[in-house]
Design a protein around this nucleic acid. Structure first.
Lengths: 341, 341
DNA sequence: CAATGTTTTCAAAGCGCTTTGGATACTCGA
DNA sequence: TCGAGTATCCAAAGCGCTTTGAAAACATTG
């Protein structure tokens, strides 16, 4: 059933029915109720496409997921972030659209999305250092929000991020205070902005304590379980293995633990481990006592907040830039302890 | 730039330009090239909404993600499944839309999506036993595909599923052949169809071997890491603990391993473990030698295939029902071994 | 060269909605 | 009772595309 039919049923004009349904004031309250009742009865839903055409707003937010032929990795935080965002979108009447694009043609994908009028705004996930996509979107003058930030991008833009530097600085400090001197960093790909900032925090803490960074203890790659295992195993075979490991992801930390177990080392005694915990729903960090000492920040909440900010931006395109820096909490679990002598 | 402007630029009618761009035959090849060149030059993209309105097809596929206030769980396979599907959609010119809906109002969400004309078809994920959504969609007469199946639903419908029963039957048999008699099952929520089928397979194998199922060794809940740990820990405290554990998810299996480690038990020697492996990109089952003996089936590939099937269905609504049953492979890793005596 | 057939192009209708610019009905004070 | 002001409703234009039905241009044949 469409507007025309509904209005004929009611003996009203399309104008009036449309207005009644969209809450405009120039319609008698009694009429409005009659219209709403009829709409509910016939299950009338305005056609999205016609509405989009007429209003010029799509009420859709786009997310572009990069697919690369090389690393077929799906970011494990994807699901939780999206779940958070989706809820906020739904509350505000927005739909959520995903586009897939080759790594190389992401810019084209964004351009396409907007030129087609398919979306009112986009969320940019996983920014790299000097992220070119940010400049593209800025130049296009479209509403967008970055989940994360991008070192090196000077033009202002909306973002929401965790204070990665501070949280890793604190975590490193915590280990230093426990007497650790050989602290490893198992980090994400360091062209990713978050990974760079974490390394910066790690290095800052070492520096502050007068410790020289040890290159062989700093690893960087995509954060899978296997990667955590592989690097840990490798480092344990060094002449001077680390007494503590800082790990950028809970999933990799699982691999770290596996490597320690295989080597017969006790986590929290022989080797201390701190992980970053995105508070993923399927990988909670224990129940009462945390398994890992961790820097924790809910990525789901970040999704909710990012969505909220983007919707604000869409409604007020010329407001000054909005940013939000979340602090991760340092939760102390069983995986850390004083350095062995 | 829109069609009208583009056609004026070219000195052609909108009709001709539209046809040239959409590959209709009744346009001179030379003209077509001229049009395409101009379109590319001006970065013309037909407006999605206008196109949708005019054609009646939305070129969008919907996915509804249930959000429940009780269990805030995001299915960890979500990301990989979606990544697979998104790729196929993109190849066929479809977009992908997500809607969020309360557990209780999912039916309404589907109805809404179609009545608004927002989607041409939907993917139904995570079907339960006697899944009511299937009947709803069938009655609505809309294209959809189920990832999984639903025991108890008698009307025919398109689905793609892993042979869960057989794979768990084989896995159980494998353990029995190794001499295990007390085999635990750490399963998903058993109102989920996949979990029911896995239990059926497990029970069938026990039955075939003349073994009595032991209720205290059969657990069922949402498959988190913590859950795997908790149940394993509980079962190890029984008077007669299991010598082998069958686990419905790699993530829970990580928890299982943690519990075994804590108890000082060696996986594959003291206790054997088999997990179901969805081949998630961030949680690969080892590199050369698998960590876990596992029943493996790529959920990403399932996403690709599901998308393909749905697109076929959309293009041929009245074709007979299509189904696809994937066999999981049983990969043997280090986590299984002969039963201790 | 006229008649016929085939290409190639176009004007205009229509998809279902919102919104502008009036029209009509109603209210109320003078 | 009249006129101004307000509340309520409506006809029609327009959003940007596809597609129908017809016209124009061109090619082919007897």
């Amino acid at each position: 059933m469409n507007l025309k039919q509904l209005s004929e049923t009611l003996g009203l004009s399309q104008t009036t029915v449309s207005r009644a349904l969209n809450g405009y004031p120039e319609v008698k309250e009694e009429t409005r109720e009659r219209v709403q009742a009829a709409a509910a009865k016939h299950g009338y839903r305005p056609n999205s496409w016609a509405k989009g055409l007429a209003t010029g707003r799509s009420m859709v937010i786009g997310h572009v997921i990069p697919s690369s032929s090389q690393h077929e990795m799906v970011n494990p935080i994807f699901g939780d972030f999206v779940a958070g965002a989706a809820k906020t979108y739904a509350d505000h009447g927005y739909d959520m659209m995903f586009s897939n694009a080759e790594d190389t043609s992401i810019e084209k994908a964004y351009r396409n999305l907007f030129q087609r009028g398919a979306v009112d705004g986009v969320v940019l996930q996983g920014p790299k250092v000097n992220e070119p996509r940010i400049e593209v979107l800025t130049r296009m003058g479209v509403p967008f929000i970055v989940h994360g930030r991008s070192t090196g991008v000077t033009s202002p833009y909306d973002w929401i991020d965790v204070n990665n530097k501070r949280s890793f600085q604190r975590a490193t400090q915590f280990l230093i205070d426990l007497g650790h001197r050989r602290i490893a960093l198992i980090n994400g790909l360091e062209d990713m902005d978050f990974a760079k900032r974490r390394r910066d925090g790690y290095l800052a803490a070492l520096n502050e304590a007068g410790l020289e960074p040890i290159p062989s203890l700093m690893r960087s790659a995509e954060m899978t379980e296997v990667y955590g295992h592989h690097e840990t195993r490798g480092m344990l075979q060094l002449d001077h293995p680390p007494t503590a490991i800082l790990c950028s992801s809970m999933i990799s930390a699982v691999g770290v633990r596996r490597a320690l177990d295989e080597a017969g080392l006790r986590m929290g005694q022989d080797v201390s481990v701190i992980a970053h915990d995105d508070d993923l729903s399927y990988l909670k960090n224990g129940q009462d006592v945390p398994i890992f000492t961790a820097t924790r920040s809910s990525v789901r909440m970040a999704g909710e907040l990012a969505a909220e900010m983007l919707i604000n931006r869409i409604q007020a395109p010329s407001e000054p830039v909005m940013t939000q820096l979340l602090e991760a909490e340092l939760v102390v679990g069983r995986s850390t302890g004083p350095a062995p002598n």
